[in-house]
């Protein structure tokens, strides 16, 4: 038996069409000339992209999301990467238990985490603030960074670091001159995914957003709940293109299946 066979390939092809359908439709719809969601559109134009450019709330939400995602990415790497290094290279007792402790937040649905954060942040007046949203997103991104970078560090051959040590490099010099340069592709991929995770995070943001501070997905949810016109499709195209860029970068650097899988 060679390859997948005709029956299986056709079945898979059908499912692929289904997977891609919503994304393809959104892209087509973004260029619609109609006033409402009609498919196929009666005509094509760029009017919804122009409308998007003039839509204040969505643009300021987009800007807020970019700010939050940037801060979240930097902070998550700053505290996640050292932890991953320790978990991957350290040989202290209780390491496995600690690894489980750090990855635990990935197991809990964001619905529960979001609720817990809402209850915690409200008396602290952190809801609907940039610090609150950043901290909220980090409950997802920090464990993600730790998981991805622990794998990246553990797959480095120990001998290369040992070699640097025998050549006279102090421990922190080994990290700087050998370990970090060698995981750079993984680090960049991790940063890209981290940004995307924060940028797309919806449920925790819905719990923590107020009228003053709403991230882009939150603003989009509100918009879709209120009306259905192709404006959101135009915005979606922007997001899809951004996602594709991240996917291509990550795929080139480390392979997407390895990065998002376990």
């Amino acid at each position: 038996m060679n390859g997948a066979g005709r029956v299986l390939s056709s079945l898979a092809g059908l499912v692929y069409a289904l997977i891609l359908a919503p994304i393809a439709i959104v892209v087509a719809l973004a260029f619609s000339a109609d006033n409402f969601i009609l498919f196929p559109p009666s005509g094509y134009s760029l009017r919804w992209f122009r409308a998007l450019g003039a839509h204040g709330p969505l643009l300021s939400a987009l800007w807020l999301s970019v700010q939050i995602a940037s801060v979240v990415t930097v902070l998550s790497l700053v505290i996640g990467v050292p932890a991953a290094l320790a978990l991957a290279k350290g040989r202290f007792s209780g390491r496995d238990a600690l690894t489980n402790f750090f990855l635990a937040p990935l197991l809990l649905p964001t619905l529960i985490t979001g609720l817990a954060l809402l209850l915690f942040f409200t008396p602290l007046r952190l809801t609907a603030t940039l610090p609150g949203l950043v901290l909220g997103h980090m409950t997802v991104t920090v464990p993600f960074v730790i998981r991805m970078m622990t794998t990246a560090f553990s797959t480095l051959p120990d001998d290369i670091e040992a070699a640097a040590a025998t050549l006279g490099a102090e421990p922190w010099r080994v990290v700087r001159r050998v370990t970090l340069p060698l995981v750079t592709p993984g680090l960049i991929a991790c940063a890209c995914l981290c940004f995307l995770l924060s940028f797309d995070e919806t449920v925790i943001s819905l719990f923590l957003s107020g009228p003053r501070a709403a991230t882009l997905p939150v603003e989009m949810v509100r918009y879709v709940e209120g009306r259905t016109d192709p404006l959101v499709a135009a915005l979606s195209v922007v997001l899809i293109v951004a996602t594709l860029i991240v996917v291509i970068i990550v795929e080139r650097l480390v392979g997407i299946a390895r990065a998002v899988g376990k």
């Binding site: 359908a21 959104v26 498919f39 797309d200 997905p217 879709v224 499709a233 996602t243």
Partner: peptide, 17 residues
């Protein structure tokens, strides 16, 4: 890839379909 694309975007696609 769909798991990396915003859920809101995909929901919107289904509304259109």
């Amino acid at each position: 890839m769909p798991m990396l694309i915003s859920g809101v975007v995909r929901v919107f696609g289904w509304l259109a379909i």
